[in-house]
Structures are given as C-alpha cells and as structure tokens.
Amino acid sequence: MFTFTSSSLRRRALAAAGTAAVLAATLAACGSNDDSMPAMDHHAHPSAASSAGSTPGMDHDSMAGMDHGSTGDGLAEAKDGYALTSTTAELPTGKDTTYAFRITGPDGKPVTSFAVDQTKRMHFYAIRSDLTGFQHLHPTMAPDGTWTADLTAMTPGTWRTYASFTPDTGAAKGEGFILSHTVTVPGTAADTPLPAPTATTEADGYTVTVKGTRMAGMGHPMTVTISKDGKPVTDLQPYLDTYAHLTAFHEGDQAFAHLHPETKVNGDHGGPDLAFQAMLPKPGNWRLFLQFQTGGRLHTAALTLDFG
C-alpha cells in the first residue's frame, strides 16, 4: 500500500498538467488532415456538385501537407492488407468509358465503409505515363463495394489510376491510403514531352504564379497567386472545402502527392494568394495540377516545377 502526502500529491498534479500541456502543443503542431464526393469528372468541366459540398459564409480551415495523411507515393496496388482490385486491364480508345474497381481489406473482402474526406468518400485520379490527360473524379459505390468512375476519352498509352480513401472501420480506421493500378489504352502511343519547369501558367484566361523555395524531402512555404487580365482574383469559391486542390505527379515513375492550401475558407472571397506548405518526397520534375473554382466553373491549371 502506498501513502502520498499532500505535497507529493501537488507535485504529481503539476507534473501531470505539464505533460498534458506538452502533449497538446505537440498535437497542435502536427495539424490535421482532410479530403473526398459523387461521380463526376472534375478535370476540366464546370461542376454544380463541386460547390454543393461547401457552405458559403462558413469559416473552414483547409488542410496542408501531403495527401490527407496517407502514406507512400501511391505506386503500390496494396498496402497493409488493403488492395485496389479491378478486372479491367484495357480501356477503349478515344471515347468516354467507365472503370470499375474495388478496395479489399485484410480479410480479402470488399470494403464498403469509408470515411468522408474533403466532402468525398473516394477520390480517383487517372493520368498517362507522360503525365498528360489528368482526370480527377469522384466515383459512386454500389452496395457490394464496387466503385464506378466515369472517365472521359483517353488517348493510347499506359495509364495509371489512383484511389485515395480512408477506411471507416477495421484496424486501419482513420488511416489514409493512396493505391494505384495500371491500364492500357490500345493504339499507337505518341508521348508528349514534359513542359519545361516554369513558375507561371495560364488556364481559362487566369494566370497562376507559384513562388517559394522548392526542395525535395523538406517542407517549405509556397504561395500560389491567381490573377486575370492583370488583376488579382478575389472571387475564388470553395471547392472540396478548400480554395484549391493541388495534385502532383513525379516525372518518370508517376509518384503521387497531394497538397492543400493553408488559407482559411470564408465564402466566395478566396484569392488572390493561397499559402501551401510544399513537401514533395522525391527530387526532380513534378507536374502539378491546380484546380480552383469561380462562378460555379472549375478550372485546371497545369505546370511543371523542379524540386531539387
């Protein structure tokens, strides 16, 4: 049996309070993660559904860092017992099509419970090996766990499809995953050379400029500025609970990364500057696709950045 004096109890209480304060500070420094919506091609078209997932006038903290807390570079088909499975090895050339897939768990059965991440339960991406043809979709799931993504016409070549998700049950509940699978589109493939690195690009009359230090494997502040006709853009609308959605693919191996702006969302008044904490794991050229919304229309700006 242990006996404590009043002074020893006070010392223990103070020590416990100090430990709690340190833990709270550590958790605050680590930040939080976010992502996910219905079947729709968000790579170049307007989307009424995209704006429906956000609430104008409300103040949200958008997320920073890599793909919603997921680990790895997205090049594996399976991780920690979870796998991206599909019976489709070939997709038609030059016409819209659907791609069906499942996520299976450690027990080999289809996963049917997913957490909502950035307003969606599944984010799906497709890109060709030369980093052209980017598509960002939000598939729909059938009761048996089969997801269906509506892909727009694809050109001949090898394509990689990515599924970004967070299980809502099981041992990996709350853990983000990014898994991928390759498919072939038949025909004569003509690779497009990767555009040279540049800090500025154009999309739908908007000018996107990127500033900041870029170094692989280390996080550095990065600012994206959006303007139109030489004037700052200040009417960005929330898209997936943020003012921009930035996806990056590594030249050569198509490694995947995902960044969120740190800028707070406050109605349809985003811009012109969006702050990111850029941390890309591998040196070399990365092809970045920045998606942002104005007037109910989604825009996609692409540019190449070199991370030394």
Score class of each variant (00 low, 15 high):
Thr19Val: 14
Val22Cys: 00
Gly31Phe: 12
Leu27Pro: 01
Ala16Gly: 00
Leu14Ser: 06
Ala20Phe: 08
Gly18His: 00
Ser32Tyr: 09
Pro46His: 12
His43Cys: 05
Ser50Gln: 14
Met40Glu: 02
Thr26Lys: 04
Ser36Asn: 07
Cys30Met: 13
Arg11Phe: 01
Met40Thr: 02
Ala20Cys: 07
Ala29Thr: 15
Met40Pro: 02
Ala44Cys: 07
Arg12Met: 09
Ser50Val: 06
Ser50Gly: 15
Ala16Lys: 01
Ser8Asp: 14
Thr5Pro: 05
Ser36Thr: 09
Ala39Pro: 00
His45Gln: 13
Ala15Gly: 10
Leu9Asp: 01
Arg11Trp: 04
Ala29Gly: 10
Ala13Asp: 14
Ser47Asp: 10
Ala24Asn: 08
Pro38His: 06
Leu23Trp: 05
Ala20Tyr: 02
Ala39Val: 06
Ala39Tyr: 00
Pro38Cys: 07
Arg10Ala: 12
Ser8Val: 14
Thr5Val: 10
Ala21Pro: 01
Ala17Met: 13
Asp35Phe: 10
Gly18Ala: 02
Thr19Glu: 04
Ser50Lys: 13
Thr19Cys: 11
Ser47Ala: 15
Ala17Thr: 11
His43Leu: 09
Ala20Asn: 06
Ser51Val: 06
Ala44Ile: 07
Met37Gly: 11
Thr26Leu: 11
Ala15Met: 15
Val22Lys: 00
Pro38Arg: 01
Ala15Lys: 09
Ala15Glu: 14
Leu27Cys: 03
Thr5Gln: 12
Arg10Val: 05
Ala25Cys: 07
Val22Trp: 00
Ala13Phe: 15
Ser6Arg: 14
Arg12Asp: 01
Ala48His: 03
Gly18Thr: 00
Ser51Glu: 12
Leu27Thr: 04
Gly18Glu: 00
Thr26His: 05
Ala48Phe: 09
Thr26Ser: 08
Ser7Phe: 12
Ala48Gly: 12
Arg11Pro: 03
Ala20Val: 07
Thr26Pro: 03
Ala16Phe: 00
Cys30Val: 12
Ala44Gln: 07
Gly31Pro: 03
Ser50Arg: 13
Ala29Val: 08
Thr19Phe: 04
His43Val: 14
Asp34Lys: 04
Asn33Tyr: 05
Met40Asn: 03
Leu9Trp: 04
Met37His: 12
Ser32Met: 02
Cys30Asn: 07
Leu27Asn: 05
Ala49Met: 11
Gly18Asp: 00
